[in-house]
Design a protein around this nucleic acid. Sequence first.
DNA 1: GTCTATACGTCGATAGAC
DNA 2: GTCTATCGACGTATAGAC
Lengths: 206, 206
Amino acid sequence: MDEDTPLIGRRGSYPKGVARRQEILDRAIEVFARRGAYGTSLRSIAQAIGISHAALLHYFDSREQLLLAVYEHAELRRDADPAAPEPGSAVDVMVAAATANVKVPGLVELYSTLVAAALDEGNPVGRAHFTERFDRVRRELAERLRAEQAAGRMRTDVDPEQVAALLVAASDGLQIQWLLEPSIPLQETLGVLAALLRPPPGDESG
Amino acid sequence: MDEDTPLIGRRGSYPKGVARRQEILDRAIEVFARRGAYGTSLRSIAQAIGISHAALLHYFDSREQLLLAVYEHAELRRDADPAAPEPGSAVDVMVAAATANVKVPGLVELYSTLVAAALDEGNPVGRAHFTERFDRVRRELAERLRAEQAAGRMRTDVDPEQVAALLVAASDGLQIQWLLEPSIPLQETLGVLAALLRPPPGDESG
DNA sequence: GTCTATACGTCGATAGAC
DNA sequence: GTCTATCGACGTATAGAC
């Protein structure tokens, strides 16, 4: 990730300085990790980076857009970290993501804050963002689940779309519960869903 | 609910005026229903009630405590509404609660906002509140689930405590997904969990 | 393009008069 | 119990230095 090399061949000039933007996002993640996301102000983030809060708004249109960008940046980082290209089953994918999420301080809080804000009417940007995001995640999961059904690795008397929604909800909700009560076994509890989804013994067809 | 009659025999004088407090909570719910919870200010709530924001803080120590009180008040109202004393299975309880929640405008958003805030270190009050709340709900659900196992109405190869956590997570998460995408069948999707938990045919023991 | 300075209106919260 | 006045901090916007 050379700062001087443009990632795409657009001749080095990007809207609002991509390299600097990345730098800001990296620093902002650390701020949220230390101070949380719910109440952290533009000014405190700017101070931690060493610029004025007005300079921050040169790269991001608003506080919420900064928060969104930070979350997506942190998520990309999270996914780039390990070597897990083939995660196996749909439940395994969610277990891996949930486990990685709760390891990043402030990430689940940031996500929860953004989702709560997205529920607000009068926040069409955030609402559209997360509506689309949930939709995409559910679709990808459902597709994986259908493949598992076809392979005989999952019971066929449940709707993959509904199981996908259930899986996303369970993963999101359990991360929150785990952060408040770490004695809850995050992976094992999601594993219960995996166990429930296994085809009954002697099942051969769909 | 006569405003002049004390509910308990404490000689009419209550800390910070119980009757007026209830009145404020009732009005505040309507404000959140119309304007959402994430960004709504003390001043706008006060204005809708017809008092100053400083007067509001005479009854509630802070904005967050007001939000918490409003949520609990709305929840009590929700539970007092219908005639459903015996809800049946654990899943039925959560289906009923989830269905009722999404019908109250702003309630899920309020809940999500408070939970997100509770994840923040430096918010010990909210954190303790929801840690305790999740704990209580999980315990009640687990107890119900154990009874269902004993009665042969639920498979016995899964841990009731873990299923309880899973059920709470699924219910919370699906309410959010439904608000963003109402085409998701809330009750049926939670019903999938009920189906998965049913004992396999021919099962007689634990 | 990057950034500082500055200003505006609003926020949660507090102090004190009535 | 409720008000007004006031505080410091907030998100946002703009003007302009370099």
